[in-house]
Amino acid sequence: MEKKYVAMVALILVIAGATIYGILNNESKQILRISTTTSLEDTGLLDAVEAAFEKRYPNIDVQIVSGGTGIALERGKRGDADLVIVHDKKREKEFIEEGYGLKRYPFAYNYFYIVGPENDPAGVKNASTAEDAFRRILEAAEKNPSVKFVSRGDNSGTNSREIKIWKNITDYNATVNGSSWYIETGSGMADTLRIADQKGAYTLTDSGTYLAYRDRIKLVTYLTEDRSLLNVYSAIPLNPSRVKGVNSAAAEKFVDFLMSNECQKLISEYGKDKYGQPLFTALFGRAEPKS
């Protein structure tokens, strides 16, 4: 009877000790909130970076929420993030000028791709620039009801770049937006690619998401490295003097890690084994390329 009693007491002490340790361990952990784009989420890159970062800093719990660039920046403004990672230079600069962000840290880039059906009803394969490709789609869509373009329509960095290209060649609101051939998904890149594939339509996609999903869709690439399609990703820590409750220390650690040789090497090799080529080009401290 005494042995059972001693064993029971020992078990209770072990459980209590483990519980106390768990509570203390959780209390000692910091939370780092990152608001980012769906392209970094869909490709899985940030999951890989998060795992490597948490291995180095086990006392920091990284919590990532994704959405379009517009949504990611709004979360930052509301105080729902300590760090934003996005890809729209114009809006990033505005975000900093308005006092919400401290500084841009460009760390990697890839390109937007213009993709579409293999039969290419708009003749985009002969286009020399992104603007030429969009012009061909516009002209073909006005004559051929089978020609469609699928837009994210979600105020993301990709959507912003797409609209910029349309505006360079036409009055976007008068001739494109609202047209029967122009379909807005209001969704992320992966969903938009799937819908474009189902409809045999053209779309603009970041190369990382396309490469990650190309085995699941029939869309092919038509324009891949036009300078106007350059897609730079940047990290921006939130300004604690403007946004309350920001974990600046953890955000700075993540940025330092993101820019480190260890992480830049991880980024430069990410996707190579699975997709035959890396999904991103790491900057390794170089200046961001100009579009």
Rank of each mutant, 00 (worst) to 15 (best):
F107G: 03
V86G: 01
F112T: 02
I183W: 00
N247H: 06
F257L: 06
L46G: 04
S248P: 07
V84R: 02
Y111I: 10
I71T: 15
K290H: 14
T158C: 07
N231F: 15
F134I: 08
S35W: 02
S234R: 07
S151T: 12
I20M: 12
I20G: 07
S187K: 15
R161F: 14
L24T: 11
Y113K: 03
T170F: 06
R194A: 10
D88R: 04
L238Q: 08
E252H: 12
V232P: 01
G208F: 05
K290F: 14
L138K: 07
D88Y: 10
N239E: 04
S179E: 11
T185R: 00
A140Q: 02
P121S: 03
R152D: 08
D80L: 15
E54S: 11
I163F: 08
G271S: 09
T209N: 01
D206I: 08
G22E: 13
V176I: 14
K164Y: 14
A251Q: 03
D171Y: 09
G245W: 12
L193A: 03
M8A: 15
G153H: 04
K244L: 10
A16K: 03
G44R: 04
R91S: 11
Y275I: 11
S228H: 14
R91T: 12
S156Q: 05
L193V: 05
C263D: 08
Y109V: 09
V232F: 09
G44S: 04
